[in-house]
Write a protein that binds this DNA or RNA. Structure first.
Lengths: 151, 151
DNA sequence: GTAAAACCTCAAGTAAACTTGAGGTCAAGC
DNA sequence: GCTTGACCTCAAGTTTACTTGAGGTTTTAC
């Protein structure tokens, strides 16, 4: 009786393997996300993870946000702001995406600015620590710790 | 000028501490960059690092490139393409920056595209693995390994 | 009823880009 | 001529985002 892996019409209990397959990430990643509080589920009688289908959308959103350059911690914050018990509505998601839209717009603006100054500054030698805009992240957009952060 | 050894004046020799102070990075970072082959210098009689002033510009360029989201390995490649012995000219730097300009333009384009699809896709639920553009990095712009990559 | 596939936990490994620490050397000022 | 600060090396630690492996349990398939 092949009703497990593709028995999808059943109400919403996905195993970790199913979530992984459907969301395109590794099982270990699902473990990790759950441990980090990015997704939530419950356990069956045999201690195996079970997830509601909504988790697929969450994982999708996580992945998209990562492509946008957001660190997991920030994504976790955003997801934590979503209602945990009631079903997340389209409006909830829209609000979340609106916030990220703004963030992205700022980053794009900064990136464009940097790009346009690149030739000028690198070429001419004005890369002084105090004088050059390329070197001074005094903008409203803060730099972070070690490691790159966008895309 | 050309009074002393190997093409540089005596006062052009910077210690690691001076480089660090002037370029705004930690001494350990200078050690690290040297070890990674991003910058080069020589040793004095007491085995202490000495650098030509040109290294300041290199460090500046490294930092800017990092702000742009380029990983060190890519920066290292670009810097390795610069002449090692003759003085790097403005034209050399211009060429380097031109390459990065293109790279950046592509990234900006992708980012803008993602941003514009964000509300639409997250809001409406089209984030399917196969169908959604946000989820499919099939674009000419490749994703990389773990860790974020832009700004 | 049993073998295989899927699952479990916990620890450790990976990569990038550095930082921190221990233990020792060099150089400049008084 | 000695103290102090800057420097040296090498090893190990840090963070993020996971992956890999060992050793053991549960579920499913036949």
């Amino acid at each position: 009786m092949a009703r497990t892996t593709t028995g999808s019409t059943r109400e919403a209990a996905l195993s970790v393997g199913e979530v992984a397959a459907r969301s395109g990430v590794a099982v270990s990643t699902i473990h990790f996300y759950e441990q980090q509080g990015l997704i939530h589920g419950w356990r069956n009688s045999g201690n195996q993870r079970r997830f509601h289908r909504d988790v697929l959308r969450r994982v999708a959103v996580i992945k998209v946000a990562q492509r946008l350059g957001l660190p997991l911690a920030m994504i976790a914050d955003a997801l934590a702001a979503l209602p945990t018990e009631r079903t997340v509505t389209a409006a909830d998601w829209r609000q979340l995406s609106a916030a990220w839209h703004g963030e992205l717009t700022e980053r794009i603006a900064l990136l464009s600015q940097l790009r346009d100054q690149l030739g000028e500054c690198i070429g001419c030698g004005c890369l002084s620590l105090e004088a050059c805009q390329l070197r001074n992240p005094d903008d409203h957009l803060a730099g972070q710790g070690p490691g790159a952060h966008m895309l």
